[in-house]
Simulated scan of single mutants.
Amino acid sequence: MPDNTVLGPRDVFELLLKSLADRDLATMIGLYAEDAVVRQPFAKPTEVVLTGRAEIEQHLAGFSTAPVALSPRNIEVRETAEPQVVVCEWDNDVTRTTDGRSVSTHNIAVLCVRDGQVVWSRDYHDHAALAGLLS
């Protein structure tokens, strides 16, 4: 018998983070609603806004081939007064696989999840540290 359980916001975030670290693009993309909107206000030189699953997939595909390994730690998920919205904080140890150089970044994401899929998120990452590692 198939499991028809719909994941809640906390579980969706945890699976999203695991899928990102595992480079499991198919699972990651499946966690976003078809019309999801992802904003990355701290991206440089300007904010990144991804509208729809196809744009999100294209953006994440670039990361999935980057020579880095992610090790998330210190993961905290806070529920809000709105049951569909969670505030997530975590650190990532990011290692460049070509030479072992690494950085540690602190991240915050605010997610709204409906029917087991992210419908919008605001992702706050240290894009400058990541870009420096990849340059």
Rank of each mutant, 00 (worst) to 15 (best):
S104N: 14
H106D: 06
T97W: 08
N107Q: 07
N92P: 01
T95F: 05
D91V: 05
C112S: 11
D93I: 10
V110D: 03
R101F: 03
G100Q: 06
V94R: 05
V87T: 15
T98H: 06
I108C: 14
T97P: 08
Q84F: 01
R101E: 13
C88F: 01
V94S: 12
R101M: 05
Q84V: 00
T105P: 01
C88N: 07
R114V: 07
V87H: 07
V85E: 13
T98L: 13
C112Q: 06
R96S: 13
H106I: 04
V87G: 12
D91Y: 02
E89P: 00
T98R: 10
D93Y: 01
V113I: 13
D99E: 04
W90G: 09
L111H: 02
R101L: 09
A109F: 00
V85D: 06
V113S: 09
R96I: 08
R96E: 10
T105K: 02
R101G: 08
D99N: 15
V110N: 04
P83Q: 08
S104Q: 14
S102D: 10
V113A: 09
D93K: 12
Q84K: 05
A109S: 14
N107P: 03
V113Q: 04
E89T: 09
G100Y: 02
G100N: 06
C88G: 11
D99R: 03
A109W: 01
N107E: 13
V86G: 04
H106P: 00
R96L: 12
R101Q: 15
D91F: 02
V86T: 08
H106K: 14
V94W: 04
S104F: 00
N92F: 13
S104Y: 00
D91N: 13
D99I: 02
V85W: 02
E89S: 10
T95K: 09
Q84I: 01
V110P: 02
Q84R: 05
V94I: 15
S104C: 12
C112A: 14
G100R: 04
V103D: 11
T95C: 06
D93G: 07
T97D: 15
V110M: 09
C88Q: 00
T98S: 15
